[in-house]
Design a protein around this nucleic acid. Sequence first.
DNA 1: CAGTATCCATACAGATACTG
DNA 2: CAGTATCTGTATGGATACTG
Lengths: 136, 136
Amino acid sequence: MDAVAAQKDTVGLPEPCARVPVEHADFIRQVLDRIGDKWTLMVVASLHGGLMRYKDLQSSIPGISQRMLSRTLSQLHQDGLVTRTAYAEVPPRVEYALTPLGASLNDIVASLIDWAADHHEEIRRHRAGTGAADAS
Amino acid sequence: MDAVAAQKDTVGLPEPCARVPVEHADFIRQVLDRIGDKWTLMVVASLHGGLMRYKDLQSSIPGISQRMLSRTLSQLHQDGLVTRTAYAEVPPRVEYALTPLGASLNDIVASLIDWAADHHEEIRRHRAGTGAADAS
DNA sequence: CAGTATCCATACAGATACTG
DNA sequence: CAGTATCTGTATGGATACTG
């Protein structure tokens, strides 16, 4: 019945929720825009083990192209999340690694990946039949 | 001969890291594709307080359009992350809320927002001058 | 109020080719 | 090996109009 709405009305946000919901959405927006692209989190996740070279990263991330890897790496470097060490030697070698800042993000990324690993089946089940009988 | 033969090892991850890096990238990919859009995390974050109606959500998330809100909500509902309760009455009222699954994701989203709030200044500093002092 | 459908702009992303 | 430039396709996302 209609009693479901009795638990809490005033759908706005009159409560003193200390969280940062959407009021300060500006920097959330910025962070989301940065990490919300197709590869950033993958690269960060790949870097969790330590130093990695350009080609190793590319090998590590199946479908990524040079362009996307370079772009992502540049953004990450610009934002101070990864370090870039270039050895201007005969065989060019460039190594990337997470900065402490990047590592802190990686911690959350790891949580996200963990969550994905833990719930992707459930999501797929729901996607097949949204709370209803199986459709396939 | 050059030292190209060195690529036989270390491209993968020789360490016994129990994490799920990029080997099972398929479902990570799926989850990232879903939450990696422009609004999903914002909507989830907005729903953290409990039940919310369509219009309230729209008011809560500044720049979102009907299309994007509907889309995002549909995806979320399809994936079983939010519940949709429609009262097909004279004044159409539809309420959305996070499911336990959605709430578990919201926990990570909260961490992400917290991280963003905590480090966005640092990121901006780096973006202004990448590791070096700004001269301009 | 809630939501969908259409049209349109752009940003994202991939393939290729080229350079250091 | 590492990385950039160009060209192009596609998905994302926004404005508007319309329906239940």
